[in-house]
Design a protein around this nucleic acid. Structure first.
Lengths: 146, 146
DNA sequence: AATTATTCTTATCAGTTTAGTAGGATATTA
DNA sequence: TAATATCCTACTAAACTGATAAGAATAATT
């Protein structure tokens, strides 16, 4: 039930892009700042790119940048894209539950409530919120060091 | 981010025990009713047994039974036992976050809120609630068949 | 006492996923 | 043309998943 690095790194990478608007952010910059393997990040950014979440510029002075305002990306959009799906059980993958036990399965109640709760959180936080949080943390951390 | 069969089967097995109080429920009965491999259930019930969630009686007329009232088992207790832990990211495993980036990691906000939301759901549902839900589903399903 | 029913224990295994690493092709800028 | 990036494909070790299998131990029944 833990999120894989794919989703977590995708989120942190998107946050890096959001933190540096109006410029091309290079993968190795993200890798260095976030302490993640840059070759691995390359693979993950491909997912973001193919989905149109970011655009790229190749070559020197190249990099990636968001296609929309940070407030238009929810954490849910990013995590679902990178992780594939976030439903707690496979039978809830589709709109209609095709499990033949769905009508008599009491535990389904648990998974439905969990799904609602999870969606409620991740669809309610945007990249803009994370940017704000990051700025706050940076201020606090800096203050602490003095 | 989907739950493994271990947690899901453990929950459904505990529900079976709760549905049949004052009797020894056999693993192969659970397996048949829940359509799960009985050999696999044997392994999972061991976890429940070692944790003291159920007691067993060996030999003919043996089986398993709950040690407490269904209302005293939360879904969270069962899932956490079977799945190991339910925190969305590894760094939240311990009481204190030992990740050296914890102080500057904005995404941690997401995982904290998610953890709260998930815990809120699973710690708020007991086996007694699931028993009630099952009885309701059984009534509805029976009505539909007539 | 023998048979049957059940829990208990340990080992094995094929397939998938995870979390990368590696190498090079392609495009852009200086 | 040299340097800097993105792009693309392949590979891999380790762990996890979801079982299956074989048999020992124990209790009840006949």
């Amino acid at each position: 039930m833990t999120f894989s690095t794919k989703g977590r790194y995708a989120l942190r990478m998107m946050l890096e892009f959001a933190l540096h608007p109006n410029e091309c952010t290079k993968i190795n910059q993200v890798a260095k700042r976030q302490e993640i393997s840059d070759k691995y990040l390359e693979q993950i950014v491909t997912i973001l790119s193919r989905a149109g979440f970011v655009k790229s510029r190749r070559g020197a002075k190249g990099g990636y940048f968001l296609t929309k305002d940070p407030s238009e990306y929810t954490v849910g959009m990013i995590l679902r894209l990178a992780e594939g799906s976030l439903v707690p059980v496979a039978c809830m993958e589709d709109e209609v539950n095709h499990c033949h036990r769905a009508d008599v399965c009491a535990s389904l109640m648990v998974w439905r409530k969990l799904d609602d709760a999870i969606s409620g959180v991740i669809d309610g936080i945007t990249l803009a919120d994370l940017v704000e949080e990051q700025r706050k943390l940076d201020r606090e951390y800096h203050h602490y060091e003095i």
